[in-house]
Each structure stands twice: as structure tokens, then as C-alpha cells.
Design a protein around this nucleic acid. Structure first.
Lengths: 159, 159
DNA sequence: GCAACTTAATTAAGATCCTTATATACTTCT
DNA sequence: AGAAGTATATAAGGATCTTAATTAAGTTGC
């Protein structure tokens, strides 16, 4: 039984519910390209975190290594990622997005930004200010999450 | 080129980036059951919004009606949803979650809530207060989103 | 230095999930 | 009533994922 929050305290259950809705909103938008959900997620991960090994990608996307191998082969054929040998370990392969792959990620983000701008446009200036005030704390939360998940600290290497 | 926000104004690009990270966080957690991503999403939609027709589900999940028919057949075999004829239209079928299906959705939400509680636990009380203050505005945003998407207004019929 | 073990990626075969195309039953319109 | 439209189901094929087995490179222990 989750504790009932005190007035003025943060209601985590409500926060969960609201963030779930944003999750659905963000997942629905991507029906852009002829790319599967996992494929888009891989491009996104690479654009955010830079080159990765296949095993790292498999872990972060929660699919098998075999699936990543096949997916990366297809993405390479499509010119969206490139593979190069890892100089520190000749068994390994480093995968990175190409300019074309990054363009897809940026386009998707622009769509999401435009959609959120439309939504925030319906708010009052005071409501927007409360979100602006909460943004650093929300960013800190995902920073903590990355640390707990053992992910690299660079949230956004682009630009 | 997105406008550079004034100090004190809401930085929509930053909000987008932070919400994208929460999206990834929420999607990663679900590796719980032997259920596909779309299947979990259907259960979630039904638990939130109540019984729906197959065509409505197809639209909201952005897959073909054929895919929904097949998926619901499987979910029914597994005892996670039930189908009944729509009294107002004998062509149509209404699908709803069973208690077992709802239990899966609630379990996933509990996992997310616990994870968020862990993250907010690392914040200062002042940081948590800024998020609590922003929560009504964030909820309003997803309410506006539902309106724009033509979805029913009941965000949460459970409990 | 080399055998045994571990790790990284690939390949092959099969299962699952999703698509297009078509069929069937019911509803609505005229 | 008949024509057109709507809701679901079925069939066949394609894309994507899984497990299992293979190759190659790195690591460990003697």
C-alpha cells in the first residue's frame, strides 16, 4: 500500500501516472519512417551516448546480441550507422551513427519538441513557470537514474 | 532553429530531452513477462480507459486492425482480456482486461513507482517541492494532449 | 608456452508479430 | 430492398526476434 502523500509533498504515484502518459505520447509520435521501434531506439542511444559495442547495445536495448548483429547489419546497409573495429580489442566492433542516422534522430526530437511546444502553449505563463522551476530537479532525477544504471554521464553529446 | 528561451522562461528543448530520458527509463523496466511491447501497451490502454472496440485499439496502438485481432485472440487464450459483443452494434466486439490482466498493469506501475521513489529519494526536499508544484501543470499538458488526440477524458479508471 | 576458459560477434533455423489482401457479417442510406 | 459502408476475421507472406551452434580473440593458471 503506497503511502498517502502529505499536502505539499511530492505524490510519486501521481508523478508516475503523468510520466506514463508522456511515455505513450512520445512512443506514438515516431510512426515516421519505415524503422522499427528497437531500430529507432538504437539510433537514439548512439546519438546520445556515442559509439558503442554490439554487446553494450544489446544490454541497453534489452534484446539478444544476435538481434543487434542483424539490426546493425541492416542499418549499415541503409547507411544509418557505420561499424569499425575497436582498436583496444580486436574481437569487438564499434558502432556509431552516420550523419543520415543522426538526422533521423534529430527530426524525431524536433517533432516531439514541436508537439510539447503546442501543449505548453495552452498553459498559463504561471503554469509554464512551475515546469521551468522543476526542470533542474527532473534532470537530476534522470542523472541519478543513469548513475544507478551504470550508463555514461554524457546525456547529450550532440551539437 | 529553435528560439533560445529567456531566463525564467520554459526551455522546451530541455524539457523534451528530459522527458525522452524518462520515456527510455519507463520502456526499459517492463522486461517482466513474456509479453511483447504492443501487448503490454494494449493492456495498459484498457486498464486506463476501459473497454474498447478492436478498431479503437488498432488506432490507439498504431497497428493494423488485423494485428489487434490476432493479439486479442492470444490475450484471450492467456486469460488477460475478455471479449464480449457490443450490445449497440452486433458487428463489434468490446475488449476489456480481466483481473489477471489488470494485475500485470498494476505490477508494472508499482515497479515504476518504486523506481521513481528511489530517484526522488536522492533529491533535496526543495527539489521535490519544485516537482510537486509542477505536477498540476504537467497533468494539464497530458490532458490537453488527450483532447488533441481525441481520447476519452478519463485518465485513470482503476481503483 | 599452451591448454582451458571466457568473451565478442556471426550464422542458421525457427518462432512471433506485423503487414497486405480478401472474406464475412452487420449497419446505414436512399 | 439494394448499395455502400463499417467491424471483425482469416490467409499468406515479410520483418524481427529468439535459441543454439560456430569462429575468433583475449585471459588465466600452471
Amino acid at each position: 500500500m503506497p503511502p498517502t502523500p502529505q499536502p505539499g509533498e511530492l505524490d510519486v504515484a501521481h508523478l508516475t501516472s503523468v510520466l506514463e502518459e508522456f511515455t505513450r505520447m512520445f512512443i506514438r509520435l515516431p510512426a515516421v519512417q519505415r524503422l522499427s521501434f528497437t531500430t529507432l531506439s538504437v539510433l537514439h542511444t548512439l546519438a546520445r551516448q556515442g559509439p558503442k559495442r554490439l554487446t553494450e547495445l544489446a544490454a541497453s536495448e534489452q534484446v539478444t546480441q544476435s538481434a543487434i548483429t542483424q539490426m546493425v547489419a541492416k542499418l549499415e546497409r541503409d547507411g544509418l550507422v557505420e561499424r569499425r573495429p575497436d582498436p583496444s580489442d580486436r574481437r569487438a566492433v564499434l558502432v556509431d551513427v552516420t550523419a543520415a542516422g543522426a538526422a533521423i534522430v534529430h527530426g524525431r526530437r524536433a517533432d516531439r519538441r514541436a508537439h510539447l511546444a503546442e501543449l505548453t502553449g495552452e498553459l498559463t505563463p504561471a503554469e509554464r513557470a512551475t515546469i521551468a522551476a522543476a526542470l533542474p530537479a527532473l534532470a537530476r532525477m534522470s542523472e541519478v537514474n543513469r548513475r544507478l544504471a551504470g550508463e555514461p554521464d554524457a546525456p547529450d553529446r550532440r551539437r
